[in-house]
């Protein structure tokens, strides 16, 4: 077992997802078979190998610090599911 049911529940919480009992069971099984497949990576010795995070090396991209016209507030808010007075409306955060 690579990953237990309890771990799957924890990962779901970190992912801000929730599943019913049956889905948790199915995920546990599928993730286990996928993670077992990944075991073959352990065959390779990577002790002195640098990790690649980007295929093309581009570093320090600078630009002039110029004032630009930002997108209008109305446009930024137009796709929000709930808004009020130029703000995104969310459920109460503070007890």
């Amino acid at each position: 077992m690579k990953i237990t049911r309890k771990e799957v529940e924890h990962i779901a919480h970190l992912s801000r997802l929730e599943f019913n009992e049956e889905e948790i069971g199915a995920f546990t099984e599928q993730l286990n078979s996928i993670l077992t497949y990944f075991d073959k990576l352990q065959e390779i010795d990577t002790t002195a190998v640098e990790p690649t995070s980007h295929a093309i090396v581009v570093t320090n991209v600078f630009r002039e610090d110029e004032v630009v016209v930002p997108s209008p507030r109305e446009a930024n808010l137009a796709n929000a599911p709930d808004q009020e007075g130029y703000c995104f409306r969310v459920p109460k955060i503070i007890e």
Binding site: T46, V49, P51, T52
Partner: peptide, 14 residues
């Protein structure tokens, strides 16, 4: 074990 290892093997593939 997973992400870093994968990124290292990525270097070898490249």
């Amino acid at each position: 074990a997973y992400y870093k290892k994968a990124s290292q093997v990525r270097t070898l593939i490249k």
